[in-house]
Amino acid sequence: MEIALSCDGLVKTYGSGTKAVHALQGVSLSVSGGEIFSLLGPNGAGKTTLIKCVLGIVFTSAGSGSVLGSPFGSVSAKEHIGYLPENHRYPAHLTGGQVLRYFGKLSGLEAAKLESQITRTLELTGMSDWRDTKVKKYSKGMMQRLGLAQALINEPQLIMLDEPTDGVDPVGRKEIREVLVRLKNEGKTIFLNSHLLSEVERISDRVVIMDHGKIVEQGTVEALTRTGNIYQLKLGNVTPEVLSALHVALLPTADGSLEMSFLTVEELNAAIDYLRGQSVLIESIVPKKSTLEDRFVDLFKSGDITHQ
């Protein structure tokens, strides 16, 4: 599969001297065409800075990168990129339709195509009824939907979204997720910045976690959320004596079942044999997968990451 975006040893330093902010400190990654790629990380990790480097809104300090086969910031590549900035603001005196028309023209759409694209993107984002309403009357979630419509106006190959579901209600979020999956099925590449991990893990093919301008973890959602051999067992008529004889780490959970961790599947089976030998009733055994959020919190709590 061809590469939609890649960078190698990307460095971005804002300012200089003692006031220098090292927003990106040698980031290398690549995004394949047609995938949903998510960039995660705490506030200030450098996620937005990376997108700004790609689009030429800021200039990289060192390292190289290419987007849709052109260098970062190239005007010709931008014809095929859609972008939803964080905290975007549109001129308050324009209506939703006028905003799309303006940005559509800047994207280089011709008149006939433009009108059909305005209608299409408004429909896609559920904003058709608000086409002729001034932007200043929009709620936050509506602004976000209009922003998404704007990012799609030029039928981009690569869609870069910075916190797309920010301020959107749960129904709206679900709709936005559906739109993103639909776009992926049309073969578009989606680059997502988000803190809403639960959202990201549902739709992302690949995730990169950043902190302090460096990549700290990357892989498929599947790989990042697999946590080894933790099983959730629901047991009937078990006594504390039986449990203590098991010699495994136990963690009671809210629904009364127990989380046990075993080094191997054999150990698990030995434990089952032992419990059955003691006439303990096993009601259920569930292998536990942590959510990406757990992984994320673990990563930043456990000191895996050294903060400078």
């Binding site: 700004k52 689009l55 014809e79 990129i81 905290n87 975007h88 603001r89 994207s107 280089g108 704007q150």
Partner: peptide, 13 residues
């Protein structure tokens, strides 16, 4: 202005 310029600079202009 913040929020406006980012978007403008992302366009092929």
């Amino acid at each position: 202005e913040k929020g406006n310029i980012d978007l403008l600079l992302s366009k092929p202009v």
